[in-house]
Each structure stands twice: as structure tokens, then as C-alpha cells.
Amino acid sequence: MDTRRAAFDACVGLGYHCETTYQLRRITGVESAHFFDWLDLDLDAVTEAVDTGFRDVLRTGAVEPFSDGQCALDRGSDIRFFHDFTPGDGERLTQSDIDHQLPRAQAKFAALAERWRRLTASPAHVLHVHLDAFDEASADDLRRLRAVLAAGHPGHTFTLLWLRRTAPADAAALPPGILTGTVAAAPGRWQGDDRAWDAAFAGLRVPRPRPAPTEAGDA
């Protein structure tokens, strides 16, 4: 099957950070949340989370303030949470803030993990998108993620889209089912470069926003 011409039923972001979530929602118009939305994590952390069925994410006693209290670091999964814990003083997270809010975060991500399991058990053809924001990953890393997804979710129909700032030198080593593309960084704009993302998705048959209904009397 020509995966670039295939029709995808859903797009699921796999990090690296918020740029991926913002752009996928802009491109598809789909606001439904997925497990890795708005998180900060590299490809190794994504692969490990999927491989372990998310069981090591947000374990009690493993989450602590990080980066001078700007986020919470989950030591069990190496995921940084910038949006799921709120500083009690409005400035910097404390361990007390995290401990108090952890049960709510655990419930949220347990629900998102269950949503992931339902999607991967469904007949949907899913485009999983990872932004390699710092050009850190290799073709071997993508092959490992593909193998973990296939082994953990037999019957799941999926394609991986590996986006980098520059083209990978080892793209020829990728097996079928893994696409590559580039999206330039947008200095000073965490959302990324809209035109670069549009170009990366050109020709991909992903869900698209529906046009607003035309009201009677509109020219």
C-alpha cells in the first residue's frame, strides 16, 4: 500500500512538545485529546511509554518539580508536564503542589491511556506523528517504535510520520510504513511554522476542518 496516498482516519501526536499538538489540531480541526498531547518528551520516552502500556507514567512518588519549578518531571517516564500541575503561589511548582494535584493528573492520563487502547484496537488507520524537534532520533529509533506499536497492538493499522528540522541522513534505512518530512523551526513562536507544516502534510489524506456552514443570504 502507498501509505502517503492512503486515507487516514485519525492523526495522533507523539511529541516532542506542544508544537505537534497545536499543528495537528490546526491542520485536522480535530480537538479530541490524545495521550501525548501538550507533553514534552523525546522519542525514547514515547517508545517506552507505549511499550510498557503507560504503567510507569505518573507513579506516586516519582513526580517532582523540574526546571526551577516551571514544570513537573516524571522520573518513571522522563516526561515533562508543563500544563497539568499549577503552582500554588502562581510562580513555581513545589513538591506539595504536585502531590496534591497528582491524583487528578493520574485520572486524566488513565482515561487517555484507555482512549489510546480503544483507538489502537479499532479498525481506524492512524497516522502517528512525531516531531523530532532537535534532530536527535535515527532510523533505528523509528524502527524500534514501529516494532513496539506492532507488537503491543496486533491488528492496529498505522503509519508513522517522522518530522525533523533537517532531512535524516539515514532515511533509506527506513522500512515501509514510516514517512519522513521536514518542518522548519519558528524562532519565538512555540506553535511552529504553519506553512512548513502545511507543506509536510501536502498530499496526505488526513481529516481536515469542515468549512463553516453558509447562512442564508450570504453571497
Rank of each mutant, 00 (worst) to 15 (best):
A6W: 01
A7K: 15
F8V: 12
A10Y: 04
C11D: 05
V12H: 02
G15M: 03
C18V: 05
E19F: 07
E19Y: 00
T20G: 01
T20H: 07
T21R: 06
Y22C: 12
Q23K: 06
R26E: 02
R26P: 00
T28R: 05
T28W: 04
A33Q: 08
A33T: 05
H34V: 02
H34S: 11
W38V: 03
L39V: 12
L39R: 07
D42T: 04
L43N: 02
A45I: 01
V46W: 00
T47E: 08
A49M: 07
V50P: 00
D51V: 05
T52I: 04
G53T: 14
R55Q: 12
V57T: 00
L58T: 07
L58A: 13
L58N: 06
R59Y: 08
G61M: 11
V63S: 07
V63W: 12
E64W: 15
E64S: 13
E64D: 14
E64N: 14
S67P: 04
D68S: 06
G69D: 11
D74Q: 08
R75V: 14
S77E: 04
I79F: 15
I79W: 07
I79P: 00
R80K: 15
R80G: 13
F81M: 02
F82M: 14
H83E: 02
H83L: 09
F85L: 10
F85W: 06
P87R: 12
G88K: 05
G90D: 09
R92Y: 02
R92C: 14
S96K: 11
D97F: 01
I98W: 06
D99A: 15
Q101A: 07
Q101W: 13
L102P: 05
P103I: 03
R104I: 12
A105Y: 00
A105H: 10
A105W: 12
Q106A: 03
F109M: 09
A110W: 00
A111D: 10
A111V: 10
A113S: 15
A113M: 09
E114C: 13
E114K: 13
E114Q: 15
R115L: 13
R115H: 14
R118F: 11
L119M: 14
L119P: 03
T120Q: 02
P123Y: 06
P123W: 09
A124C: 07
V129C: 05
L131I: 02
L131C: 02
L131A: 00
L131K: 02
S138C: 03
A139I: 04
L142F: 07
R143W: 05
R143P: 06
R144G: 04
R144F: 01
V148K: 12
V148C: 09
A150L: 09
A151R: 13
G152C: 10
P154N: 11
G155R: 05
F158L: 01
L160V: 11
L161I: 08
W162Q: 13
W162L: 11
L163W: 01
L163K: 03
A167S: 08
D170A: 06
A172K: 01
A172C: 04
L174N: 08
I178A: 11
L179Q: 03
L179W: 00
G181L: 00
A185C: 05
A185E: 04
Q191E: 13
G192Y: 06
D193A: 10
D194Q: 09
D194G: 03
R195A: 15
D198A: 15
D198P: 12
A202Q: 02
G203L: 07
G203Y: 03
L204T: 01
V206Y: 13
P207V: 11
R210Y: 02
P213G: 11
E215M: 07
E215P: 13
G217D: 00
